[in-house]
Amino acid sequence: MRWFWWFGVVPQLFLLAGYLHDLGLPPVDVSVFGALFLAWFAQVRALPMLLLALAIGRSLVDQASLPVHLLVIGVPIAVLLPLRALFVAQHWLWQAMAASVLAVVIPKLSGLCARIFDQPAPVGILDPWQVFWAASLLPPLLLVARLSPPFRAFTEQAEQARRVAA
């Protein structure tokens, strides 16, 4: 059932984020949000399928093909995942730093993959406001998401136990 909710809800978050931005709210990059959740909070065994749903959602708003989105989101996760053990307690400052790094890396990686695999490339201009909003908004959003379905069902149990103990 949790998988049904994950594949039903997560791809639509990309459209929802854009819709809310159209209404005047600050932009939220769901790719960065998803990558951060998967890298630091999600169950490691479930990562492949969780990543697939994120890539499908990104395909709705970006012209590149699905495997490119898998790489663009998956490679930063593969880099950040070993750091999960180092940044014990996941202080919000680390999350903000990681979010701002991902807000730069994911568009750059997207452009690189587009060049290598002959895919439509995203706009190469980096918006500093995107980085700012990623660093400011994503830590509280991650906190809320970890308490709400469908993210709660995929949060690593050790992480949940740590949160309860705290």
Binding site: L47, P48, L70, L71, G74
Partner: peptide, 10 residues
């Protein structure tokens, strides 16, 4: 699993 899906993407 993550490495496997990245290889699959390639």
């Amino acid at each position: 699993g993550l490495y496997a899906i990245l290889l699959l993407a390639l």
